[in-house]
């Protein structure tokens, strides 16, 4: 790359970064400000940080909500990655006419707005409550069950599997590995970055999921983070400083997940496995 192009890359990335970071930065600044300064959009750090943190912990039970959201997001991520990658791999590597039809039908499931599925789903969980109350209405399990596989993830894994060299599968079969052996020992480790990307996205979506947990979870001790933040902003005179503090604290887990996962995005992954 020429020097000019290099400079261009840095300048472009820096501008993009600044634009991207700006609201996040403001969020950080706002947690140190009084409510009134937040509504004024103040860009200057204030002295209210400790006060805001203290008020936050006094007014809401943020720790149990973090634990609930954490459980839901972790379980969802692990199960969704496993189930969806099995399926994505299966659809691509064991291609058949019938499976392709099924695949196309599955894609339909991400095309319908979730809002209209809620009433039938709620009714379904109402019936489940009669026989299996431990996964019925007002349980964490009910909050994550509908998200443990999504067509979105299956689609992503299938498209990624298209980039996976088929010779490696044949090589695995010659080595006497079973089909699951090939999946777990060759495909999974090779596609590490694909899993990393899927993990980031799934964790984040689950952590931020709002509509379904809102209707299915009732007890305060089952509250998740987005519901808690929604409540904080609900009054006639919300304290925006406290809200921003809550937002920053609850954004950290996703930021950390991202930061650690993106390290896997290093070049030459394929080379090292070959």
């Amino acid at each position: 790359m020429t020097k000019f192009k290099r400079i261009f890359a840095y300048v472009f990335l820096t501008i993009a970064s600044i634009i991207s970071i700006f609201p996040f930065l403001w969020m950080l600044i706002s947690m140190t400000n009084k409510s009134i300064d937040v509504t004024r959009g103040s860009m200057l750090p204030g002295t209210q940080l400790l006060e805001n943190i203290k008020n936050l912990f006094q007014t809401v039970d943020i720790v149990p909500a973090m634990v609930n959201s954490g459980i839901i997001a972790l379980v969802t991520t692990v199960l969704a990655l496993l189930i969806a990658s099995l399926a994505g791999y299966g659809f691509e590597m064991f291609k058949s006419k019938k499976k392709d039809i099924i695949f196309n039908i599955l894609l339909l499931s991400m095309m319908i707005p979730f809002a209209v599925l809620m009433v039938p789903l709620y009714r379904m969980f109402g019936s489940i409550s009669q026989v299996m109350p431990f996964i019925g209405i007002d349980t964490l399990a009910a909050a994550f069950l509908p998200t443990i596989t999504t067509a979105f993830l299956i689609f992503f894994f299938r498209q990624s599997a298209k980039m996976f060299p088929k010779e490696m599968i044949e090589a695995g079969r010659i080595d006497g590995l079973g089909e699951f052996g090939i999946f777990f020992r060759i495909f999974m480790p090779t596609m590490k970055t694909t899993y990393a990307a899927a993990a980031i996205i799934t964790f984040m979506n689950s952590w931020n999921n709002y509509l379904w947990p809102l209707v299915i979870l009732q007890s305060p001790d089952k509250q998740t983070i987005p519901l808690l933040i929604s409540n904080l902003g609900a009054g006639y005179s919300p304290d925006y400083g406290v809200i921003m503090t809550a937002i920053v604290i609850t954004t950290l887990p996703t930021a950390l997940v991202f930061f650690f996962m993106q390290k896997h995005f290093v070049e030459g992954m394929m080379g090292s496995v070959k």
Partner: peptide, 26 residues
């Protein structure tokens, strides 16, 4: 008395979903 705090829009949504599903559970 167990008071459960929810934003007004959230309550409207929860009530509508629950009541129209026909299950009074929750």
């Amino acid at each position: 008395l167990k008071i459960i705090e929810n934003a007004q829009d959230d309550i409207v949504q929860k009530l509508n979903t629950g009541l129209s599903s026909g299950t009074m559970k929750g």
